[in-house]
Design a binder for these strands. Structure first.
Length: 466
RNA sequence: UCCGGAGUAGCUCAAUGGUAGAGCGGGUGGCUGUUAACCACUAGGUUGGGGGUUCGAGUCCCUCCUCCGGAGCCA
């Protein structure tokens, strides 16, 4: 008798007919009548369930008919052709052993639940069809990212999660401290009354990282092509379906490269990871297409075969000014594009992904390379229909004097960036990189509309239960 | 954080200011091929918290909390 996974049987059902098998898994649903019954068993290996037929002749038949959903079982039986039309084969059970009984108050029913409710039981929701598909996809998509970069000789760099001071300057950060906040009187103070971080664990103020970019640039100057893939944190009070306080980000960085090379890489990567996922998870993608987002597969196929549009910020402003529709926020050169503007460009004008590049320097970060016009920087955002900004990147300022000036212009402290500036002193090269929000890519590929539903245990304001 | 909507049984939702209900889920029984199985019976409620108006509040008013959506911040 062979131990089998449901995936092995259901991927090649004909090859297993007549085979004696030993299965184990959980009851997804159970239906019984007086003399026989059906169990849909999920063993974790496959999105789909296998049907178990059990009959009166089993010694524990009565017990089995009353088993609650989620009960775990060991099953011995024979693979047979199924008379029913919904499955090619089923298991004729010869022995069913209860491994772990479930309780009758198991909260998941054999019907649709709202995503809101399922978020309150994040420890159980991976057992539902939707979240089973989502989180298997998440695993495969993560692997797709690594495959893409590893096949192209990128070096994977683990940048730190705890970071010194707020050098990165990208939004609110979570403090990291060993001071006892329950006992404020015990927290050391300087003579001027401020918290004395010199006496804290790291002898300085530390935070959770908002980006690994600055650190990964240092490795870029050694390995030429590098990427990070890890968690980042934002303490913003953002209450939207597209923001989380903890999320994973992919940040490639390439040396001897400019903004066009950067966009080429981003476009190639997006197409690769989409195709990779579609190829490996046909059942899950079909499920998303049918139940989550009807046009999903068409749209994804379209992305893979299309050429992403590339326009400059200045061209985008002209397009928006010519638009027939009115916008809530004014369109004016020098102001940042609003969500409504980005959506208009990617959903109405081009109806496909759009790179917008060369933004005014005053609305972008200090490290972005100043263009020859001295008014714009070599920045780019990739806008996707439906999810908006999915990638933000730039060519980095590789010229020491320019970078130093920009740091000062932005009111930042040059001393804080001593090691970052030294990269421009010791053999500087043009280089570029970008950040891809992993969860946002997940949303786009699965059709899920809320970031809280593509992160196993999402952290958002007021929510860190699990 | 701002704007809007919502909060009633385990879940999804009804209920003109006048006796709180249904479907699903749970329990019990029935049923010889089911597919969110079906049929019958049954248990289940501090209507988010607090305050107010009223003879009477799930319903009207105030306030707080939480969730959802839009916006901002961004990835």
């Amino acid at each position: 008798m062979a131990r089998r996974l449901v995936k092995e049987i259901l991927r090649n059902p004909q090859e297993h007919i007549g085979e004696k098998v030993h299965l184990s898994g959980w009851i997804r649903t159970l239906r019984s009548s007086k003399h026989f019954g059906f169990i849909e068993l999920n063993d974790g290996s496959f999105f789909k369930n296998i049907q178990i037929v059990f009959e009166e002749k089993l010694s524990n038949f009565e017990e089995i008919t009353r088993l609650p959903i989620a009960t775990s079982l060991e099953i011995e039986g024979t693979v047979v052709e199924s008379p029913g039309s919904k499955q090619p084969v089923e298991i004729q059970a010869e022995k069913i052993t209860v491994v772990g009984l479930s309780d009758h108050d198991y909260p998941l029913q054999k019907k649709r639940h709202s995503f809101e409710f399922l978020r309150t039981i994040a420890h159980l929701r991976p057992r539902t069809n939707t979240f089973n598909a989502v989180f298997r996809t998440r695993s495969v998509l993560a692997h797709a990212i690594h495959t893409f970069f590893q096949e192209r000789d990128f070096v994977y760099v683990h940048t730190p999660i705890i970071t010194g001071s707020d050098c990165e300057g990208a939004g609110e950060m979570f403090h990291v401290t060993t001071f006892d906040l329950n006992n404020p009187a015990s927290i050391p103070r300087t003579e001027s009354g401020e918290t004395d971080f010199r006496q804290d664990f790291f002898s300085r103020e530390t935070n959770l990282t908002v980006s690994g970019q600055l650190e990964v640039e240092t490795y870029c100057m050694a390995f030429r092509k590098v990427y990070t893939f890890g968690p980042t944190f934002r303490a913003e009070n953002s209450n939207t379906p597209r923001h989380a306080a903890e999320f994973w980000m992919i940040e490639p960085e390439i040396a001897f490269a400019d903004l066009q090379d950067n966009m080429d890489l981003a476009e190639e990567m997006m197409k690769f990871i989409i195709q990779y996922t579609i190829d490996r998870l046909p059942e899950e993608m079909e499920f998303f297409n049918q139940w989550i987002d009807k046009g999903l597969l068409d749209r994804l196929h379209n992305i893979v075969s299309s050429t992403f549009e590339r326009i400059t910020y200045t061209e985008a402003i002209e397009l928006l000014k010519k638009a027939k529709q009115t916008f809530e926020y004014p369109v004016e050169w020098g102001r940042d594009l609003q969500t409504e503007h980005e959506r208009y460009l990617t959903e109405k004008v081009f109806q496909k992904p759009v790179f917008v590049s060369d933004y005014p320097k005053d609305i972008k970060a200090f490290y972005m390379r100043l263009n020859d016009d001295e008014k714009t920087v070599a920045a780019m955002d990739l806008l996707f229909p439906g999810v908006g900004e999915i990638i933000g990147g730039s060519q980095r300022e590789e010229r020491y004097d320019y970078l130093e000036n920009r740091i000062k212009e932005m009111g930042l402290n040059v001393d804080d960036y001593w090691w970052y500036l030294q990269l421009r002193k010791y053999g500087t090269v043009p280089h570029a990189g970008y950040g891809l929000g992993f969860a946002r890519a997940m949303m786009y590929i699965t059709g899920m509309e809320n970031i809280r539903d593509v992160i196993p245990f999402p952290r958002t304001p007021r929510n860190a239960e699990f």
